[in-house]
Amino acid sequence: MIQVLKCTVNGKPVELGIDPRESLADTLRERLGLTSVKKGCEVGECGACTVLVDGVAIDSCIYLSVWAQDKHILTVEGLQDENGELSPIQRTFVEEAAVQCGFCTPGIIMSAVEIVGSGRHYTRDELRRLISGHLCRCTGYQNILNAVERAVEEVHRTVGK
């Protein structure tokens, strides 16, 4: 059985046939070639598959594609601006050496986009809680927290101006 999914992915309208049993992670990876969407468990435990749906971070492996009807989906592939500049959180991830194997990276970056975009300030402990749905085996989260903290601050500073 094939169903038609209409939604926006990284700013572009898409319309494609999907299996109604299919997860959004599979639609994005297998059908649209958006391989930044990683899978580490496929049951909502690791956060590697996180994307934004209408601005909210979700585990796309346990999100049915049919639920994304008419919604806006954002993946890491959609973060660079039109000039190719990295978004603030991507930049701080590079600068703070928050990337190692890189497999958890796209997912955490998408959660961080939500965090940074909220316009709020957070304590270090609040940030720990906010990213605690993401598992990373390489970094001990130390530099990831540094990167998120800095991106939050920097965006605040520019928006504040």
Binding site: V76, L86, Q90, F93, V94, E95, A97, V99, P106
Partner: peptide, 11 residues
């Protein structure tokens, strides 16, 4: 900086 960082943060 890591030589692979850019590719990893852009997916």
């Amino acid at each position: 900086p890591r030589v692979d960082a850019f590719d990893k943060v852009t997916g």
